[in-house]
């Protein structure tokens, strides 16, 4: 129990206390999830009338009804589509944002301040006022009803959020490493690939996790650009069950929503391990 660590020495009692606090907190965090899982086993006639999270039986009907839609398309298609879009977005963001971030963080070039302000500025305009002109561009390129509008821009670092994130992390890397490499004759690209990228681990992992989750959960842009069912992603698939003006299938919606959390939790669990390892094991020469 008393696993002492390198960094913080923890006594068993305080560790117990930490566990206690964390467990109480965890319950508050998890309650909604439990409620949703519970609802996914209930028939529609009980979901809104009986609010206890515990279902009467583990009835899998909702899962079976939800997985294959009336059209014959199954959620398997939506999962594949979501993964394709997410993979594209992740690769795009990792490549393009890290390049831009390195420039902003380390290279003194003309108008750097201006471009940095412009980059942050792109985060500040509400999405809804630029979405129509953006749609017109993608429509003119013939990209509507393809994954391209959701992926290609990521290869051009349109998610300024991640550039800024990486800038902050790169600025936390001791500059002496770079100066030493320069003395050894490395050019900027070599420094970037051999020093910065390996040390940027935590930021790259964070970028991966966030890009995956945000792309996976994104609704409005996928709704706009994907029009036919074979292109639909999970987040669009989930909305196929709900119609505010008529018939809705709540049970299957909750079942598929529950299921849709599995990949997100897996991705998070897998990558957060990398977060633990991070720089601590990389070793630094001061």
């Amino acid at each position: 129990m008393a696993t002492s660590t390198r960094t913080v020495r923890v006594f068993p009692f305080s560790q117990l206390l930490t566990h206690l606090v964390l467990i109480v907190g965890a319950f508050c965090m998890l309650y909604p999830l439990l409620w949703m899982i519970g609802s996914s086993f209930k028939p529609d006639s009980e979901i809104f009338t009986e609010l206890s999270p515990i279902p009467r039986s583990l009835d899998l009907t909702n899962y079976i009804r939800g997985w294959v839609l009336g059209s014959g398309t199954s959620f398997a298609t939506f999962y594949i589509n979501s993964f394709v879009v997410c993979a594209g977005a992740i690769i795009g963001n990792l490549l393009s944002c890290s390049l831009a971030a390195y420039a902003f963080a380390r290279i003194r070039f003309k108008l750097r301040g201006l471009w940095f302000a412009v980059m942050l500025g792109t985060l500040m305009l509400p999405f809804h006022v630029t979405v129509v002109p953006q749609y017109i561009i993608f429509n003119a390129l013939g990209w509507t009803n393809t994954f391209l509008p959701l992926v290609v821009p990521k290869f051009f670092a349109v998610d300024a959020f991640f550039i800024f994130l990486m800038v902050q992390f790169i600025r936390g890397i001791p500059i002496e490493l770079e100066q030493a490499a320069m003395v050894d004759g490395c050019n900027r690209f070599q420094i970037f690939t051999k020093i910065i990228l390996p040390l940027l681990g935590p930021a790259l992992v964070t970028t991966t996790i966030f890009t995956f989750i945000w792309t996976y959960n994104d609704f409005f842009s996928q709704l706009l650009y994907l029009s036919t069912e074979k292109h639909y992603t999970v987040s669009l698939g989930l909305r196929l069950f709900l119609d505010a003006s008529g018939q809705s299938a709540w049970g299957p919606m909750f079942a598929m929503t529950t299921l849709s959390l599995v990949p997100v939790i897996l991705v998070f669990a897998f990558f957060q391990r990398r977060l633990v390892e991070g720089i601590a094991t990389t070793g630094l020469k001061g």
Binding site: L99, A100, A103, T130, P133, P153, F156, V158
Partner: peptide, 23 residues
Amino acid sequence: DNAYGYLFLAPWLVGLLVFLAGP
């Protein structure tokens, strides 16, 4: 440094020009 700066920034600049500046 100027050349390197804009080289690293190139993808973002293209993205800015094509996808963001217009809208």
